[in-house]
């Protein structure tokens, strides 16, 4: 399967990406595929030859990353060192499509987008970056038995002040803005908490243990489609959209008065 085949297939599988649920399903497919590849890897390795994989990671790195991060990940004036950032960091930046930057200049804001590499390529790059020095591993999420309420408390204390009670993000000063969490897959949420990408602070295992990490990710996941018992959620903007809705209602009521107070002619 070539790279462009992979991209085409993934795009086709995701459709036009309007539907959040479908996007999630897409990610589930990707992750399932990744898991399947992982399971069948020994057999594949024998077929392709064991020496194949470790060599492709460095080659990809040299072609796509080294110009900013240095030939051995030591960093340059264009980009930070990758020694010791760990697998979690490489996985987060590559899978979120934030890296590589479209324009390779310092000071660019890395935006979320389609990943530039296939799943296999990403895993090879991640392995290579992780081999440069010790750093946070990709967290192993388990959302089967979580305490959603605990997660909510942790979310409100640690996340809501930047990402909003709804996860739609918030305004920062001089650093772009805190991004919305809804399009971020669970695993990347967990990675971001551990590594603190960009202006985001990081949360170590001593501060937020793995169980708490599961809880807080589960709550952020819940916020994708929270319970809107009261009807249409007005995009969860709070009193700002409520003001707009009230404004429209006022318009309706003015129309009612225009009808009632109309001067009958003739």
């Amino acid at each position: 399967m070539t790279y462009s085949d992979a991209v085409t297939r993934r795009r086709a599988a995701r459709g036009d990406r309007r539907d959040r649920a479908r996007a999630l399903l897409g990610w589930a497919v990707v992750l399932a595929a990744a898991g399947a590849l992982l399971v069948f890897q020994p057999a594949r390795g024998q077929e392709d030859g064991d020496g194949d994989r470790p060599e492709r990671g460095p080659a990809l790195y040299q072609a796509n990353c080294a110009s900013c991060h240095g030939n051995r990940g030591e960093g340059t004036f264009r980009g930070p060192s990758l020694i010791g950032v760990g697998a979690a960091s490489a996985d987060y930046w590559l899978r979120s499509g934030r890296m590589p930057l479209p324009i390779r200049e310092p000071g660019q804001e890395a935006k979320r987008g389609e990943p530039a590499f296939s799943d296999l390529q990403i895993r090879e790059l991640v392995d290579y970056v992780a081999s440069l020095g010790d750093g946070p591993q990709i967290p192993e999420l388990d959302l089967t038995d979580v305490d959603l309420a605990k997660g909510g408390e942790l979310y409100r204390l640690n996340c809501a002040s930047c990402h909003n009670w709804d996860g739609k993000g918030g305004a920062l000063v001089n650093r772009g803005n805190a991004p919305p969490l809804h399009p971020v897959p669970d695993r990347q949420l967990a990675e971001a908490i551990r590594i603190g990408p960009g202006a985001m602070p990081q949360f170590s295992e001593r501060q937020l243990d793995d169980e708490e990490l599961n809880d807080v990710v589960a709550y952020a996941d819940y916020l994708r489609t929270p319970q809107d018992a009261g009807g249409y959620g007005l995009a969860h903007w709070g009193p700002s959209t409520e003001t707009v809705a009230g404004f429209v209602a006022m318009l309706v009521l003015v129309l009612v008065t225009a009808w009632l107070g109309e001067r009958r002619r003739g």
């Binding site: 408390e153 909003n164 009670w165 916020l223 009807g231 959620g233 007005l234 969860h236 700002s240």
Partner: peptide, 24 residues
């Protein structure tokens, strides 16, 4: 009945040391 207003269950309970961005 149809336009949700002030969904307090999503805001969460108040704590003096907790705050959300986008507070209006």
């Amino acid at each position: 009945g149809f336009l949700q207003i002030n969904p307090v269950w999503l805001y969460g309970p108040y704590d003096v040391f907790v705050v959300s961005s986008g507070s209006q």
